[in-house]
């Protein structure tokens, strides 16, 4: 399974839906709808690349971490000015 293909599916998944920040597990399920053979580690690799490229960002509460598309939902600038 190509990483580029998974990255595309990931971006597509993160662009849709009401939730702008998602758990890793939900992200894997989302990708699997498009690419059923994708494994968790392949999705992780693709997500890590997208984070490095600046397309995806982590959102952490301190106890758990979620992923979100950069520019969708709360931004890093806003996270200091909005009450959760």
């Amino acid at each position: 399974m190509g990483t580029e293909e998974i990255k595309k599916a990931l971006i597509e998944y993160l662009s849709k839906g009401a939730k702008t920040k998602v758990y890793f597990k939900d992200m894997v399920s989302g990708v699997k709808k498009t690419i059923p053979d994708a494994t968790g580690s392949e999705v992780k690799k693709a997500a890590t690349e997208l984070v490095s490229e600046g397309a995806v960002e982590y959102f952490s509460t301190g106890s758990t971490t979620m992923y979100g598309l950069k520019g969708r939902g709360i931004s890093s600038e806003e996270s200091g000015t909005q009450t959760e």
């Binding site: 509460t61 979100g68 890093s76 996270s79 200091g80 959760e84």
Partner: peptide, 9 residues
């Protein structure tokens, strides 16, 4: 308030 998009690259 805690949490958010915060960390090192």
């Amino acid at each position: 308030k805690h949490g958010g998009i915060i960390g090192v690259l």
